[in-house]
Design a protein around this nucleic acid. Structure first.
Ligand code: FES
Ligand code: FES
Lengths: 141, 141
DNA sequence: ACTATACTTGACCAATTTAGTCAGGTATGT
DNA sequence: ACATACCTGACTAAATTGGTCAAGTATAGT
C-alpha cells in the first residue's frame, strides 16, 4: 500500500498555497521552486483541484491560484478525491454481489478490507488543511 | 493507495488454511481451487510465509501446509511483513534527515504521512487471523 | 499595442511495479 | 515406482506512475 506522489504533491502544494495566499495569488512557479515539484506536473494537479473547486485561478501577470474555501473546510478527503487518489482495498466491484475472483459470493476477507478502507478514510475525513498549517508553524516555533 | 493482490491473497489463503488444517495439512491445490487463486502464485506467496515461520510445510503425498502458530498469535502485520506488503506513505528515506525532493529538511507534510502510516499500521497490529475466523463463522450462522 | 507572465490543454513517454506464467526441479507416503 | 505436492528461479504482458513536451489563451503592466 503506498501513497502516490500525486496525492502527496497535491497536499504539499496546498499547504504551501495556504501559507502564502494571504495577500496575492500564488503562482505555480513559486510553489514548484519552494516545494521542488515539477511545474508541468503541478499544472496537471491544479487543473483537477480547480475542477473540484478547491482552488480558484487568476490568469495573467501576477496571477496564480487562491484557495476557494477556508483551510478548515478543506479536508484531505476533498483533496484526494479531486486528484483521484482513492483508497482501494478490494478488487471486487463494490455494488456487485459477486466476489473478487468471479465467485458467486463475497470472499472470506471482504469484510476485513472494507473495515480497513473505512479506517483509512476516517483519517482523511478528520484532517483539514488547517491542521497541517498549525502543525507546521508549531514546528517552526 | 491500494492493497496489492499479493497481500490480499496471503490473508485469504491463511484464513482458508486456518479453517481446514485441524486434522491434516492443506495442499495449495485445495486452497487454489477454493479461493480461486493461481497455484503458481500461491507457491510464491507461501514460500515467503514459510520463511517468516508463519506456516510449516510437509512434503510428499498428503502433504501441504500447516500454521506454525495459533491463529490469535498471527497478526496481519506479520503476514504483510512476510510477503513484503508494506505501507509506504513517504518517499524520503526514513533515517535520513533530508526531505523528499532532496531538500535539506523534511517537507511540510512529512509529519502527516508519518501519522497516516502509524494509523494504518495500528489496524494491522490489532487484527489477528482469529478475528477473521470469528467474523467468518458469524456470517455463516 | 506589445510583451511578459502564468494559467490551460492534450498528447506522449520511460521506468517501475504488478500479477502473474512457465519450466524445471526435489522430497515422500503408498 | 509413482503420484502428489512442495520448491526454485527465470521470465513477461499489462497496468500504473511520474513525469515531459508542445502549443496554446488570458491578462496586467508598460
Ligand atoms: S475482496 Fe470483495 S470478495 Fe474478495
Ligand atoms: S515526505 Fe518526508 S520530507 Fe516530504
Amino acid at each position: 500500500m503506498k501513497l502516490t506522489s500525486k496525492g502527496r504533491y497535491a497536499v504539499m502544494a496546498l499547504v504551501d498555497l495556504a501559507r502564502f495566499d494571504n495577500i496575492n495569488p500564488v503562482s505555480l512557479r513559486d510553489i514548484s521552486l519552494r516545494q521542488g515539484i515539477s511545474l508541468d506536473y503541478l499544472e496537471q494537479i491544479f487543473s483537477k483541484l480547480k475542477k473540484d473547486q478547491i482552488v480558484k485561478s487568476i490568469r495573467g501577470t501576477q496571477g496564480g491560484y487562491v484557495l476557494s474555501k477556508k483551510p478548515n473546510e478543506i479536508k484531505l478527503t476533498n483533496i484526494f478525491h479531486a486528484v483521484d487518489e482513492k483508497v482501494k482495498t478490494v478488487q471486487c466491484k463494490k455494488e456487485s454481489k459477486k466476489g473478487c475472483n468471479g465467485k458467486a459470493t463475497k470472499c472470506v476477507t471482504h469484510n476485513l478490507w472494507d473495515e480497513l478502507e473505512t479506517h483509512i478514510n476516517t483519517f482523511f475525513e478528520k484532517k483539514s488543511l488547517e491542521d497541517l498549517l498549525k502543525n507546521n508553524t508549531e514546528q517552526r516555533a
